[in-house]
Amino acid sequence: RADTSARPPHIGPEGARISRRALLILIGAAAALLAAFVIWALYGSSWLRVEKVTTSGVEVLTREEVEAVAATPVGAPLVSVDTDAMERRLRQKLPRIDRVDVVRSWPNGIGLKVTERKPVLLVEKGGKFVEVDAKGVRFATVDRAPKGVPLLELKPEPSASLRRFGGDRLLREAVRVTGDLPAAVAKDTEVVRVASFDAISLRLTR
């Protein structure tokens, strides 16, 4: 008689189905536990909360000014910080900012990456100077004229085109002309005079 004592036990189809079902249950339970842990780590634990704010790219603005306006919620879960709202607030309250990126710096930081507007023309007003950037945006008023930035004398002559387009169009045209100047000429330009769209003149230092 053949010896059958070493044969492995036979697992029928029903047993295989039970084993697969148990495996799926275990996998589902593990996934649920992992998801619960991730949610707790992001929102409930003290590991991933805002502890520090770093600011880069400022030149005229100070870090203190930028961070005060940003109003980063220190102590809040890092994942819950509304970075879009912070960016909008910074652009609205600090017009000198041309672009700002608010980024999460895991595990516990917020980074404020600032790009400031650069003045290409100045408009004198009440003894002060309004800075105008390369897009024609008036973004700041300063007591002293920044060195190397030409003064704009906007004295338009009455014309049909002026009534149609207004002074802002002349300002943008002056910005365009200034941006197109050769570097050597731009460096020596003190004043840009604008009388009309086709009457723009320069006063040079030499």
Score class of each variant (00 low, 15 high):
168 D>N: 09
19 S>H: 00
129 F>E: 05
127 G>V: 05
110 I>F: 12
8 P>Q: 14
66 V>E: 03
76 A>W: 06
69 V>R: 07
86 M>A: 09
97 I>H: 12
64 E>N: 10
174 A>S: 07
45 S>E: 10
61 L>E: 14
49 R>G: 00
5 S>K: 00
55 T>M: 10
78 L>F: 06
29 A>W: 07
161 S>F: 08
22 A>S: 13
189 T>P: 02
183 A>C: 01
157 E>S: 12
20 R>T: 10
83 T>P: 04
26 L>R: 12
37 F>N: 12
85 A>F: 06
60 V>G: 06
160 A>C: 00
119 P>D: 01
34 L>R: 00
18 I>R: 04
120 V>L: 11
115 T>W: 01
152 L>W: 04
165 F>V: 09
46 S>E: 14
116 E>R: 05
85 A>K: 07
29 A>H: 07
103 V>S: 11
74 V>F: 08
23 L>N: 09
104 R>P: 02
115 T>H: 02
125 K>C: 08
45 S>F: 10
112 L>I: 14
86 M>Y: 03
115 T>P: 00
92 Q>T: 15
183 A>S: 09
123 V>F: 07
144 R>W: 04
59 E>S: 11
166 G>Y: 01
33 L>G: 07
2 A>F: 04
6 A>F: 11
135 K>I: 01
19 S>N: 01
169 R>F: 03
206 R>T: 10
9 P>G: 12
12 G>P: 01
74 V>T: 13
86 M>C: 06
171 L>V: 02
127 G>W: 07
135 K>C: 01
76 A>H: 07
29 A>Q: 04
25 I>K: 06
80 S>E: 11
110 I>G: 11
192 V>L: 09
103 V>H: 00
128 K>W: 08
16 A>H: 10
65 E>R: 14
121 L>V: 03
181 L>D: 13
7 R>T: 04
20 R>W: 06
20 R>S: 08
72 T>V: 15
106 W>N: 11
143 D>M: 13
88 R>C: 02
28 G>S: 08
37 F>M: 13
176 R>D: 09
136 G>T: 04
14 E>W: 13
110 I>W: 02
195 A>C: 00
199 A>M: 11
155 K>V: 05
35 A>F: 01
103 V>K: 06
79 V>Y: 05
59 E>F: 07
11 I>A: 08
126 G>D: 11
79 V>W: 08
87 E>G: 11
88 R>A: 10
72 T>R: 05
4 T>G: 00
67 E>K: 11
171 L>R: 02
37 F>I: 13
28 G>Y: 00
161 S>V: 12
112 L>Y: 13
83 T>L: 12
166 G>Q: 05
102 V>L: 10
114 V>W: 04
42 L>T: 02
147 K>R: 06
47 W>V: 08
71 A>Q: 15
105 S>A: 15
